[in-house]
Simulated scan of single mutants.
Amino acid sequence: MINLILKDVLIQKKIILFYIATIIIYLLAGVPSLIPLGFLYSVIFILNAFAYDEKDNANILLNSLPYTRKEIVSSKYIGSLIFTTIFVFMIYVGDFLINGKGDLFIWKEMLFIIGLVMVAISFMFPISYKFKTHYLLIALGVLLGIYMLTISLLVPVNDILRELARKFLTLQEAQMYFLAIVTTVILYIGSWLLSIRIYEKKVF
């Protein structure tokens, strides 16, 4: 399974340099919040790795290797956690070195980003396994269009989301964090099991 996770890194080794370069540019520009940055880069990297497996009948090749379908799906979910943690770590270390922030690791923000990615992946992976990634991208494009229309015509969604994130990050109650973590983990595991079931029934 480790080789499957390493595969996702190797197929994007050239793009990773582009990711790092653009992250540095954003940090030099002094982005006000690192949360959207960490979330977007993590999700883009994960979905891009997923999309590579759909090219040129790559799934047929994967299924000819000595890995079970359960291991193939599990490598995606485990790899997503590893990649997200690396990206978050890299962004916060970079911000500390470039902008000289007082705290090297803001654990609440880092956990918040990882949690957001886990929730997003929990919905994205089953859809991608059931259909194709490009259908997911179309759906995301539609949602983005609705989002842009909403913030320009109806309600200040950005302000609402920012306020919700601020309230979560300023919470002092350990029970609330525990509840949020448990809910996210249950959702992620449920998605994991659902994706395995979907993938095991697919015919290539």
Rank of each mutant, 00 (worst) to 15 (best):
M1P: 04
M1F: 04
I2D: 13
L4R: 04
L10H: 11
Q12D: 14
Q12E: 15
K13H: 14
K13C: 13
K14W: 15
I16D: 09
L17I: 15
F18M: 15
Y19M: 11
I20N: 07
I23S: 04
I23G: 03
Y26S: 13
S33A: 11
I35S: 05
P36K: 02
I44C: 07
I44F: 10
I44S: 07
F45P: 04
N48Q: 12
N48I: 07
F50L: 10
F50Y: 11
Y52L: 12
Y52P: 07
K55R: 14
D56T: 13
I60P: 05
L61R: 09
L62F: 14
N63C: 07
L65E: 06
Y67H: 08
K70G: 03
S74C: 06
S74I: 00
I78T: 09
G79A: 11
G79Q: 05
T84F: 01
T84K: 01
V88Y: 03
F89E: 08
I91H: 02
G94S: 00
D95N: 13
D95F: 01
F96L: 09
N99R: 05
K101D: 08
G102D: 11
G102L: 09
G102A: 12
L104N: 11
F105G: 06
I106N: 12
W107N: 06
E109W: 14
E109K: 15
F112D: 03
I113K: 02
I114Q: 00
G115Y: 00
L116S: 09
V117F: 03
M118E: 00
V119F: 03
A120K: 04
A120C: 11
S122K: 01
F123E: 07
F123Q: 09
F123N: 08
M124I: 11
Y129H: 08
K130A: 03
K130F: 04
K132A: 11
K132F: 08
T133D: 10
T133W: 06
H134A: 13
H134Y: 15
H134R: 15
V142S: 06
L154Y: 05
L154I: 04
V155A: 08
P156Q: 01
V157F: 06
N158L: 13
I160E: 10
L161I: 14
L161Y: 08
L161M: 12
R162Q: 11
R162T: 08
R162F: 09
E163V: 06
L164F: 10
R166D: 07
F168Q: 09
T170V: 03
T170I: 01
L171N: 00
L171R: 00
L171W: 00
Q172P: 04
E173C: 02
M176F: 13
Y177A: 01
A180T: 09
I181G: 07
T183I: 11
T183D: 06
Y188A: 04
Y188G: 01
I189R: 06
S195L: 01
I196K: 09
I196Q: 10
R197G: 10
K201C: 12
V203P: 06
F204K: 11
F204I: 12
